[in-house]
Design a binder for these strands. Structure first.
Lengths: 185, 185
DNA sequence: CTCAATTGCGCAATTA
DNA sequence: GTAATTGCGCAATTGA
């Protein structure tokens, strides 16, 4: 009931008519009248201002004077209960929809943050792994050199075993060795 | 009261000033319109509604129009040019703001997608690196074994200095190969 | 204090 | 016919 006083009033007022108004009801927004806008603290209540409704509209235009008897119950255009009811329902739906929309946006933003964190973690890990790999490779090379030296020195005997190994290695590889890692955030 | 004209109409038709309105200045969006809410395809309309202002009954009499006699130029509250001007400005600002807001949301969503992709890439890389590491590690172990065998076989002769290396290497490997490290950035 | 930007809200046209 | 969306205008706030 009190709801419709809001915008309509203003709206109407646009054209110059008056209206009544009321202060805020429950948590709702404070509406105010044309003349006095009651911002925040609103205490007060309503002030009604009636205006001389001049019958002949004149005003801008058109005039139409009171078309008094035209208003079907059904689709009584606007004053009908039915209309009001629908409006209210829609308003509710709108509110809900907007709320969800907002929430979704928020979630998305959060998702971005999470992904960014994850990303950093992954990059750090890559860095680490790369480093390790690098170290190992160096060692490997060094080792190879040493082997070469040794092999040459001792004698023709020890053929380096590193040949058929591929198979075995592959198996191992498939197993994935030991890279497990857990991380929680 | 006549509210049926509601906003748009009111807005434009408001005081008779017609106005096709809107020219948006700043590079804004291309909207169409003449009457504000022109639905898609807008074709016409607008004429009709002057008439029906269903007065409705409620309010009693209905009428409307003609702002009584109060219309200061400044702050004439509603009919004032100044008011209208401000409204228009605000409407424009609102539009702009909303546009940006929407755009931002879109960007954010896109950001999520990009980050997701990036993440996948990073994970793939990690997997690859891990595999390489694993291979190298196995290779090392194998080598170590072979070396050990070879060393034993040849005889007590020349202890190859490589052993030390191996040990070190192994240690390193252990650390390096399977280490899962925690502690996030 | 003015003014652009935000924000909550209701209306109406669409869409599903 | 209903609920959900979406564009829009109004008004109250807020931040420069």
């Amino acid at each position: 009931m009190s709801k419709r006083l809001q915008q309509e009033i203003t709206t109407e007022q646009n054209r110059g008519t008056v209206s009544v108004i009321q202060g805020q009801a429950s948590g709702a927004p404070p509406t105010t009248t044309a003349t006095a806008s009651g911002p925040p603290g609103g205490s007060l209540q309503l002030v009604a201002q009636l205006v001389p409704v001049t019958p002949a509209g004149g005003g801008g235009g058109g005039g139409k004077a009171t078309p008094p008897s035209k208003m079907k119950k059904t689709s009584g255009d606007k004053d009908s209960d039915e209309y009001r009811q629908r409006r209210e329902r829609n308003n509710l739906a709108v509110k809900k929809s907007r709320m969800r929309s907002k929430q979704k946006a928020q979630d998305t933003q959060q998702r971005v943050n999470e992904l960014k964190e994850e990303n950093e973690r992954l990059e750090a890990k890559i860095k680490l792994l790369s480093k390790e790999l690098s170290v190992l490779k160096d060692l490997f090379l060094e080792h190879a050199h040493n082997l070469a030296d040794n092999v040459q020195a001792p004698g023709a005997e020890g053929a380096s075993p590193a040949h058929n190994n591929n198979n075995n290695i592959n198996n191992n590889i498939n197993n994935g060795g030991c890279n497990n890692n857990n991380n929680g955030q």
